[in-house]
Amino acid sequence: MPVDRSFLPLNIAVLTVSDTRTEASDRSGQLLVDRLTEAGHHLAEKAIVPDNIYQIRAIVSQWIADNRVQVILTTGGTGLTGRDGTPEAIGPLLDKAIEGFGELFRWISYADIKTSTIQSRAIAGVANGTYLFCLPGSTGACQTAWDHILKDQLDARHRPCNFADLLPRLTEL
């Protein structure tokens, strides 16, 4: 007999990593907020932080320690320039990496931006029972990640499996 699966709203925090964006000009962060709330999830927190490894870690560490935050989405700082340090800031905080996220993101992105997708260092992982997804700073990249990966994986109704179903078991020993 099929099990009735209900939607489980998650508490999601959004962090924009940028030296130049403000709340008024943060289109990528706002796109993620709009997408997650339209899907029925709750915005737990939203912040903008400069491209500084230690400032990124400070905010993300605070959210990882907050049991109310179940998912963290970052946008920006995943490129190759000297100021792009989001993967370096987040990587050491992860208990486990989700290697397939970055691989799938680049594969899907290839359809739109061809070989330019190789410049993305999008990463994901788990820390203290919290999912983290580090996305590029463009609105197109955030839309691709949400619409083609995160929308389904953060929905407990998605089959055959999803990240939402695993949340209670992330901290099992």
Rank of each mutant, 00 (worst) to 15 (best):
A24V: 06
Y131S: 02
T144N: 13
T139W: 02
G82I: 04
P160Q: 06
G79S: 09
V126F: 14
A65G: 08
E172G: 05
Y131M: 05
T115V: 04
K96V: 02
N11R: 15
L32N: 05
R106M: 04
T81W: 04
V126A: 12
V14D: 11
A127E: 09
D26K: 12
A164D: 09
R106Q: 07
I12K: 10
S138A: 11
R35S: 15
P168K: 15
D19L: 11
P160T: 11
C142Y: 02
A47I: 05
P9I: 08
K114E: 06
I118K: 03
H41S: 03
E45L: 09
A141M: 09
L167W: 01
M1V: 10
G129S: 12
I149P: 01
F101M: 05
Y54L: 10
F7C: 10
I59C: 10
I64N: 07
P168E: 09
L170V: 13
L167N: 10
L166V: 11
T22C: 08
F7V: 07
V69S: 06
F105V: 02
V17D: 04
I12Y: 00
Q70Y: 11
D84F: 10
E88I: 03
N11S: 13
A47N: 14
L135M: 09
D155N: 15
V49Q: 11
I53L: 14
N162W: 13
D51P: 01
A58W: 02
L10R: 13
E23L: 11
D19E: 05
V60W: 11
A44M: 04
W107F: 08
G77A: 07
F163L: 15
A164E: 11
H148W: 07
W63V: 01
D112R: 12
D95S: 14
V33K: 09
E88D: 10
A58G: 06
D95C: 11
K114G: 00
R157S: 01
H158R: 14
G137V: 05
Y110A: 06
A24Q: 13
K46M: 12
G79P: 12
N67M: 00
S25H: 08
G137M: 06
T20E: 00
K46G: 05
G82E: 06
I90R: 07
D34A: 08
C161F: 09
R106G: 01
E45K: 15
T117C: 15
L135I: 14
A141L: 02
N162M: 15
S6T: 12
L166Q: 13
G125K: 08
I108K: 12
G85N: 06
D112T: 08
A97I: 14
Q30T: 14
D112F: 04
S28N: 12
V49S: 05
E172F: 13
P168T: 03
C142P: 06
I98D: 00
V17G: 02
R68P: 01
Y110C: 01
D112K: 12
L167T: 10
K114Y: 09
T144F: 00
Q153K: 12
V17P: 04
I118T: 04
Y54Q: 14
T78Y: 00
P2F: 15
L32V: 00
